[in-house]
Nucleic acid binder design. Structure first.
Lengths: 239, 239
DNA sequence: TGACATATGTTCGAATCGAAAATAAGTAAA
DNA sequence: TTTACTTATTTTCGATTCGAACATATGTCA
């Protein structure tokens, strides 16, 4: 560092501005029972006490945004190893009544089986089914107990996550993050149908997927079916 | 607001955390002389004094992210009326040596003619040609004076902006933001070719564009050509 | 051994797309 | 006035893609 740069830094006072707080919020999604679902936490503090919220937390001064999201996944959602991707930053002035908070939303994907342990931990966590509307309109979350009211602007964040997932499905291999290591083409198609909300043509879907070069046949077959078992495939990471 | 909520807010101390600062940075792009270009400002302060940076500024405590981006467009780039869209948030810990700064990057589009007035304002502003690499790899900026060194992580932000623009070109009408109100199909194709870096088939391009329903023929013709003048079209906003 | 259910593969017509050729409409020079 | 020239616009044609229907394969189970 040059001398005049050191001088500059010494004279710089970062407290000239009143600063917004920064958080990350996580839309942790999966496909459960043939429909998109997201993990929600019941708020046990004001504001919005009792409503359901996305897992989130403040970004610490010495961690990157990605690190903060990864930490929230571990500490708040009690899971790890998820596919993660930054979604969008939300910064409306009144989105949190306590103070000015800007949140960087992430979306994360895991196969449904991975949620079981975390959900057993307590009634403060739920895996809510997401009713995804057509092009836009807010997504709505429902539980075994019925519709869930979401805290803050989390319904808006959730809606964007569903749209993003839909949009990326065709040209990126995100779908595989929702399946176990080995899976059948039918399972993959079920995931695509659940996310897109449309039923797909089976041979065409098979052709498209195989042509993309994302799949690697294992030669193994699924077990436990009372009919012809399907071949198991593995996701082939990019070359 | 309920009584217990008021009580909660009174007892809340937001100064428990050391907070990152939040800025917005603007990738203001256009097509100039058949190539993508972006507006850069020469830094006249440390750090990175003399290098070229994206126009940016701190997010004020009472303005949304979008408002902050709009203000930066007006105050730093001295322009208005641009198409704007949030790009991505960058939050690596050491991206600014002064202090922890998280920046929300926006990308903005305007026709090339709109830059003339701002560029006349002084030598601190330049419209740099962006050499766009293939799939990834950092974008490089060049001036009439040669290659430009970019401050902070702005080369990375610029690269992402170019990729985003490329990606959206086919399924969203962003291309029109780079053209005047009335334009010919050839001008539109030039914009697409400059951004995608590929030369396109003329009749096919015409068909695809007309089929999308984004275009409205005006019946007018361009003037000043020494050959058959092309019809002028207008962008038809969504229904 | 045969019924059954689903996986897997094949075929065919419609739609899409790129390349090339044909036609149209201006300016400018002869 | 006519002709050459340049680019816009339309048409045509073959290759490719894609969805739907159909045909075949391969397991389990009665």
């Amino acid at each position: 560092m040059r001398d005049d740069e050191v001088e500059f830094l010494a004279g710089y006072d970062p407290r000239h501005y009143e600063r917004p707080a920064v958080t990350v919020d996580l839309v942790l999604m999966t496909i459960a029972d043939g429909a998109p679902a997201a993990l929600l936490i019941r708020r046990d503090e004001h504001p919005d006490l009792g409503l359901w919220a996305l897992p989130g937390g403040f970004v610490r001064i010495d961690e990157s945004l990605d690190d903060a999201a990864r930490r929230v996944l571990s500490e708040k959602a009690r899971m790890d190893g998820a596919y993660m991707e930054q979604l969008y930053s939300f910064g409306a002035v009144g989105r949190d009544p306590r103070m000015r908070i800007i949140t960087v939303a992430y979306f994360a994907l895991l196969p449904a089986e991975r949620f079981a342990a975390a959900l057993r931990a307590g009634p403060g966590l739920t895996l809510a089914r997401i009713a995804a509307p057509g092009a836009d309109g807010p997504a709505t979350a429902t539980d075994a107990d019925g519709p869930l009211a979401l805290a803050f602007d989390h319904a808006e964040i959730l809606s964007l996550a569903v749209r993003r997932l839909r949009g990326k499905l065709d040209y990126s291999p995100v779908g595989f993050a929702l399946l176990p290591d080995l899976f059948t083409l039918r399972q993959l198609q079920d995931v695509h149908e659940a996310i897109s909300g449309m039923s797909l043509n089976k041979p065409a879907f098979r052709r498209r997927m195989l042509d993309k070069g994302w799949l690697e046949p294992t030669g193994e077959r699924e077990t436990g079916a009372s009919f012809r078992p399907a071949e198991l495939y593995r996701f082939k990471p990019a070359i």
